[in-house]
Design a protein around this nucleic acid. Structure first.
Lengths: 173, 173
DNA sequence: CGGTATTTGATATGGTGGATAACAATTATC
DNA sequence: GATAATTGTTATCCACCATATCAAATACCG
C-alpha cells in the first residue's frame, strides 16, 4: 500500500541552514527557490541520471568504458551470434551511430565483426578474449564500487524498488 | 521479506490496458537476453528519463517548450531579481550555454534581460506577461497530462517514493 | 528465371547539449 | 590606483542523436 519511509529515502530532508534574506536583492548566497521544479519527476530523473553516469565513469575509469560501451559488451556476452542491427536495436542505438561505436570497441580489440556465412550482408558480433576479460573486470568494479554505493545510499530494498519503477516507466510509459 | 510492499514491487500491475503486444509469430526474431543490464540502475535510469522527456515534449507541444525551457520559466517565476549566473547555476547549465537559451526565450517574448543598476555587469531576468501566461498554461498541461499519466502508471504513493529517491540521488550521490 | 523490393552495414551531414578558453566591461580588493 | 575577480558573451570543440542515402546482398514475386 503505502511506501515505507525508510531512512535512506528521507535521509537528506534536513533543511538548509536558514539565513536572513534582506528585502533588497543585494545580498548574495541565498539559495534559490526550486518551487514546482522539485515535483517535476523529469527534472530529478535527469539530474539523478547524470550523477549515476558520472559515478559509473569514475568507478570504471581504469578500464576506460562508458556506460554505453559497457552495455554493448554485456549484451554481446549474453547474446552470441547476433548482428549489428539486433544489438543496436535492443540498446536503442541507431544503426548509423552504432558503426563508430563498434569501430572504437573493435580498434581496442574488445570485440570483432565476423561476416555471416548465412547472410553475407550482416556482421556477427563476438567478444574477443580481451573483451571478455575486460567485461569481467568491469562487472566487478561496477558491482563493488558503483552499485554498492547506490545500495549504501538507498538501502537494498529501496534500490530494488527504484529499479523496478524505472524499468516500468522505460517499458510502459 | 522484510521489504515492505515497496511500491515498485507492484508497480507493474498498476493500471494499464494491454495495448500493443508484438505477439506476431516472429519465427526468427527471438528477443535478446538483457542479462545484467536489467540490474544496472543507470541503464533503466537513462531509458526512463528519455521516455519521460519525450512524453513531456508531447504534452506541452502546443506551447513549444522543452523541459529545460520550462524549468527556466519556473525558476524565474519563483525567484525574481536574479541574474543569469544564478539561474544557470541552480539549473546546472553553464553560463556560456545559457546565453543562447535565453536568447531563444527572449526572442519569443517569454522573458527579458534587464541591466542591473547595482551591478551594471549583470542582467536581471524577469518573466514577461506572456511568459507568465505561457508558464501557467504549461503548468496545467504538465499536471493534467504528463504527471497525471505517471501517477496512473505508478500510483501516487509509488510516484512520490520514486521522486524522493531520485532527489536523494541527485543531491547526495 | 529475372526484375523489383527489402535488408544490412556504412557514409555523410545536420542538429542539439555540454565543456573550455578567451574577451570587454564592470566591480571588488588591497 | 593597480591588480584581481566577476558577468555576460563569443568562439570552438566534442559527444550524441537523427535523417537521407548508398552499395552489396538477399528476399520476394510474377
Amino acid at each position: 500500500m503505502t511506501v515505507s519511509k525508510t531512512a535512506a529515502v528521507d535521509a537528506g530532508k534536513a533543511a538548509r541552514p536558514g539565513r536572513k534574506e534582506p528585502v533588497e536583492a543585494a545580498a548574495e548566497g541565498t539559495a534559490l527557490q526550486m518551487g514546482e521544479l522539485s515535483e517535476l519527476l523529469g527534472y530529478s530523473l535527469k539530474r539523478a541520471q547524470l550523477k549515476v553516469f558520472d559515478d559509473f565513469l569514475r568507478c570504471v575509469a581504469p578500464l576506460q568504458l562508458t556506460p554505453a560501451q559497457f552495455s554493448v559488451l554485456l549484451l554481446l556476452d549474453k547474446n552470441p551470434g547476433r548482428n549489428q542491427t539486433e544489438i543496436a536495436n535492443t540498446l536503442g542505438i541507431l544503426r548509423p551511430n552504432f558503426v563508430a561505436m563498434l569501430d572504437g570497441l573493435e580498434s581496442r580489440d574488445l570485440c570483432a565483426r565476423i561476416r555471416s556465412t548465412n547472410d553475407r550482408r550482416s556482421h556477427i558480433l563476438v567478444l574477443t578474449d580481451k573483451g571478455r576479460a575486460v567485461l569481467t573486470r568491469a562487472k566487478k568494479l561496477v558491482a563493488s564500487k558503483h552499485e554498492a554505493r547506490l545500495n549504501e545510499l538507498l538501502g537494498p530494498a529501496n534500490r530494488a524498488a527504484l529499479l523496478d519503477m524505472l524499468a516500468t516507466i522505460a517499458r510502459e510509459f
